[in-house]
Design a protein around this nucleic acid. Structure first.
Lengths: 336, 336
DNA sequence: TCAACGTGAGAAAACGTTTTCTCATCATTT
DNA sequence: AAATGATGAGAAAACGTTTTCTCACGTTGA
C-alpha cells in the first residue's frame, strides 16, 4: 500500500518452496500435519533465504507485542541503570524488548510517553524512579495493561518492589559489630526521605535506644561536616560510622584522613548504594550496602511478564534483601 | 484468534457512529470526501469512547514501526544517559519510541538484541558506546535498516557522530589563557585512547611546541600522582592544568588542597566531561568541558529519522562542538 | 428530459502472520 | 469392490488499520 520493503516474507518462502503460506507457517512452527520431509525442506529453504517472521504481524494476531515500557525520571541513572539492565536481562530471554521512556519530572511528557506505549500495545509498564517515596508525575492506575512499580511509589493495591532498607541497615551494623566496633553512629540523608528514616529506625533498633543518628544532605560535604561535629566536641568519638550513601561515606573518609584518623584501623566506615564510581575510587575503597537493584530489576521484569501472561501475582509492597559488599573501609576484609 | 482484548477499535467507533470503518478512518485522518458534519460527529464519538489507533496495525501497513533501537555497551551511563535523553527527546516529538538494548560486551547478546529489533521492524538503529575508538561487538553493516553511530566507532561509509575533542581542548586552553595563565600543562588519560591523543594534539597546537602532556589513568589517583610529580621536582610549577576528565581534575584539586596550593587563586583547573556528580561536588566546583552529548543524541535521533524517511544524509565522521561550563575551579567566573 | 458531473459513503484489498476448516488422495478394512 | 479412515496440504478468516475503487444519489446544464 505504501512503501514496499525488501524483507523476505513468508510468501517468499512459500513461493520458493512451491507450497502455500499455511504450510510454511505450520512447518516452521512445528504444528499441523505434514510429511516430515516437506517440513524439513521448508525449514531449510527458510533458513537459506534468511526468513524471520515479522513480529508486528504476530503481535497484531496474538494481541501480545512482546514489548514492555520502562518509565523513569532518574536522570543520573544511579538507580535506573542497574535496574534497567536487570529488567532487560530477564526479559530478553523471553523475547521481550524494553521501551525506554525518560520523563524527567514533566507530567505532559509522561503522558505523551504513556500514550505512545499504549498505542504500541506494550504488554506492561514498569515504573521506576530516583526515589522510593515519590511517585512519578503521571497516574498509571486504570491502564489497560499491568503495571509494576520498582523503586518508586505506587498506588495502593498495585505491585510494588523495593529494596529492604531495614535489612541494609541491619547488615551494616552487624558487620561493624563483627569487626569489634562499639561506638557506632549513623550519618545519613534528610529525614524527609522515607528510606533514610527506615534505615535510621532499623539502625536504632540494632544499636540501642540512645544510638546517634545524624541527618543531613546526601552529599560529601555533609560527610565532612558530620566528622567535624563528631570530632569537634569533647565527647567520645565513634569507632564505626554507617553512612546513608557512598557520597557521604566518601566525605567522611576524606575528612577523617585530613584529621589523621586512620580508616579502617581507628574507625570503620560503611557506605550505602555500592555506587562503584564512588565506592571503588575512595581510598580506602568503601565497604558498602548494595541494594541489589539489578536483581530487583530482574524480579520486576519477571513480574510484569507474569502479569502480562495472566498469571496471578500478589499485590502489595515487596521488599527485597540487600547485600553487603566488602572492600577495605570497614576492616576485617582479609579475614577470609 | 487468540486473546481478545478489550481495547476499543475502529470497528467499535464505526458501530457507535453507525457508519463504516472506512468512513471513520477517513474522518479521523481528515482525508477522503464526506459531509463535514459526519466528520465532526465521528470525531466526537471517537473521542468519547477513547479510541486510539493500534500502532501495530498501522506499522504493518506502512512498513514503518515508529520505533528505533538504541544499542549500548556503556554500563555506567556516563555517556549513554545524556545521549539517550537527547535521542528520546528528539524522537518523542515525532512519535518515535526507543528500544533500549544494553549489550555489555557480549557478541551473542548483541546479536540477540539486534535480531529482536529487526524482527520488531525498527526503522533504524543507533549504536553508541563508552568509547569513541572502540566498536560494539557486533557487525551492523548490511542491515536492512539504517544505522547511525554516536560516540562509538562505526564502519567506513557509515554515518558517525562524535564530540569534537580538539575543539574541547582549544576551549580549555583559550579559557586558561583568558584568566592569565602562562604555564599550562595537560594531565590526561592513556595515550591508547584516541580522544586523549586528539585532545593532547590540539592542546600542544594551542599551547606551543614544548607543552607538557602527561598521560596516565582516567582516575583520581592519577590526578593526585601527577600533582606530586609536578610539584615534586625543582622545575617551575604550572599555573594552569587542563585535565582529561573530571575524575582526574578532582584528584588534582584534592592533591593541591593537601599541598596548600589554592585553586583557583594559585592554579586554574579545567576538567573534561562535565559529569555533574563530580564537577558539581568538587570544591571548588569544576570548570569543565562539556561534550554536548545531549545535543549529540538529539542530532543522532534526527539523523536516523532522516535516514528512515529516505532523506539523504552525508556519510562520514561528523564532529560536534563542545562547550565550556564555567564553575569556580578556573577563576574568572565572577567577571560577568 | 436527459446526460454529465459532483458528492457522500461504503466494499474490498492490502500489510504478514497463524489457525481452523475443508478437501483430495491414498491406504486399509470389510 | 466399496466404505472407512488416515494423511498431507491448501483456502480462508482473522488481527486493526488505511486507501483505492466503486456506486448511488442528487444537482446542474443544455
Amino acid at each position: 500500500m505504501v512503501a514496499r520493503s525488501n524483507r523476505v516474507t513468508i510468501h517468499d518462502v512459500a513461493k520458493a518452496a512451491g507450497v502455500s503460506v499455511s504450510t510454511v507457517s505450520k512447518a516452521l512452527n512445528d504444528t499441523g500435519r505434514m510429511a516430515s520431509e516437506t517440513r524439513e525442506k521448508i525449514k531449510s529453504i527458510a533458513a537459506d533465504v534468511g526468513f524471520r517472521p515479522n513480529a508486528l504481524a504476530r503481535s497484531l494476531l496474538f494481541n501480545r507485542s512482546f514489548t514492555v515500557g520502562l518509565l523513569t525520571n532518574d536522570t543520573y541513572g544511579r538507580f535506573t541503570l542497574p535496574l534497567m539492565s536487570g529488567i532487560s536481562e530477564a526479559l530478553v530471554d523471553h523475547g521481550v524488548s524494553v521501551f525506554l521512556c525518560a520523563i524527567e519530572d514533566d507530567p505532559a511528557l509522561a503522558k505523551v510517553h504513556v500514550d505512545a506505549m499504549l498505542d504500541k500495545q506494550v504488554d506492561g509498564i514498569i515504573a521506576t524512579g530516583k526515589r522510593v517515596d515519590r511517585s512519578l508525575p503521571v497516574d498509571l492506575a486504570g491502564l489497560p495493561v499491568p503495571v509494576v512499580y520498582a523503586f518508586t511509589e505506587g498506588v495502593p493495591g498495585s505491585v510494588i518492589l523495593t529494596a529492604d532498607d531495614s535489612d541494609g541497615a541491619r547488615l551494616a551494623v552487624e558487620r561493624l559489630r563483627k569487626v569489634g566496633r562499639k561506638r557506632i553512629v549513623h550519618v545519613t540523608g534528610p529525614d524527609s526521605f522515607v528510606s533514610a528514616v527506615e534505615r535510621a529506625d532499623a539502625f536504632r533498633q540494632a544499636v540501642g535506644p540512645d544510638a546517634l543518628v545524624m541527618h543531613g544532605a546526601w552529599t560529601e560535604a555533609w560527610g565532612h561536616e558530620a566528622v567535624t561535629m563528631l570530632w569537634g566536641g569533647d565527647k567520645e568519638t565513634p569507632d564505626g560510622i554507617f553512612c546513608g550513601n557512598d557520597q557521604i561515606a566518601r566525605g567522611v573518609v576524606d575528612a577523617l584522613r585530613e584529621k589523621g584518623v586512620r580508616v579502617p584501623e581507628d574507625v570503620s566506615i560503611i557506605g550505602f548504594d555500592n555506587w562503584e564510581i564512588f565506592a571503588d575510587q575512595t581510598r580506602p575503597a568503601l565497604t558498602t550496602v548494595d541494594m541489589n537493584l539489578k536483581e530487583l530489576g530482574r524480579t520486576a521484569g519477571l513480574t510484569i511478564l507474569d502479569l502480562a501472561e495472566g498469571r496471578a501475582v500478589e499485590a502489595g509492597l515487596r521488599k527485597l534483601p540487600c547485600k553487603l559488599v566488602v572492600r577495605q573501609s570497614c576492616g576485617g576484609d582479609r579475614e577470609i
